[in-house]
């Protein structure tokens, strides 16, 4: 990981390149990535308030915060898994530290996450949600989420090199994880047999540190923060370790 330091300008360039591709030559590109979570929120709002009938105060804000977090988490993982394969030609011919690619993938996810906060604030205002000073805590929450996500990306990206079908497999597992995370439903509707699964889902802990300041307008309790930071650091350390260990073999499998 320390080998990355001299390459920080490269990481940033890769982030900019990724953003340029994502929003290339089109206002629609940018508008779409801001609009997509809003539409998703609308669908969920209709589905959950009209069909499933459960009561959550200001459900749009609750759901949107969850969707934004989840989009960042899942997209960054898939991006970092594709990052090594996508840069195989470079990795085989230049002594560039391989970790720069998943790192750039997650960083560009963070930038998108930041941009996506704009429509979120618009919804906050539009629904008459109170803007609390706790919102200033969001950068810290996003930093924790980013560290956690980077850990997952580093852990999983070598797998995608060794076995090409793991990206699809992870896609399915992410789907499963999404249902076990209270993104679009409140904790109180989770039936007894699944309660432990959802409660002890580490992703929930990271999500709530991000959502608390938005939805409840308060900084999460210190105990929650400690758990979330601990999880993020642990997953990052595990991911960095696995990545470093498999680094030697990656070049042979690309």
């Amino acid at each position: 990981m320390l080998r990355l330091l001299p390459y920080r300008d490269l990481a940033w360039e890769l982030v900019l390149r990724d953003l340029r591709v994502r929003y290339r030559r089109s206002v629609i590109g940018l508008a779409w990535s801001l609009l997509q979570p809003l539409l998703m929120m609308l669908v969920l709002h209709v589905a959950f308030s009209a069909i499933f009938r459960f009561e959550v105060d200001n459900y749009p804000v609750y759901a949107l915060a969850g969707i934004l977090f989840w989009n960042f988490f899942s997209q960054s993982i898939v991006h970092s898994m594709n990052a090594l394969k996508g840069n195989a030609g470079l990795i085989q011919r230049l002594p560039v530290p391989k970790a720069v690619f998943p790192v750039a993938a997650v960083l560009s996810g963070v930038v998108n996450f930041g941009l996506a906060l704009i429509p979120l604030f618009a919804i906050l205002v539009a629904t008459g949600h109170r803007l609390e000073p706790a919102l200033l805590f969001l950068p810290v929450a996003i930093a924790i989420a980013a560290l956690f996500t980077l850990g997952a990306g580093l852990l999983l990206s070598p797998l995608a090199v060794f076995f090409s079908d793991t990206v699809e497999l992870i896609g399915v597992l992410l789907q499963l994880a999404m249902f076990l995370t209270p993104i679009f439903y409140p904790m109180k509707i989770v039936p007894e047999p699944f309660l432990a699964l959802v409660r002890f889902n580490p992703i929930r802990s990271i999500l709530e540190v991000f959502r608390d300041p938005i939805y409840y307008g308060k900084i999460p309790p210190l105990s929650h923060l400690a758990v979330a930071s601990g999880l993020a650091i642990a997953l990052f350390a595990l991911g960095a370790w696995v990545f470093a260990r498999s680094s030697r073999r990656i070049n042979f499998y690309l």
Binding site: P6, Y7, D9, L10, E13, L94, P95, V96
Partner: peptide
């Protein structure tokens, strides 16, 4: 040049 490890 960035890929070769140069700074901006």
């Amino acid at each position: 040049a960035l890929l070769l490890g140069r700074r901006r």
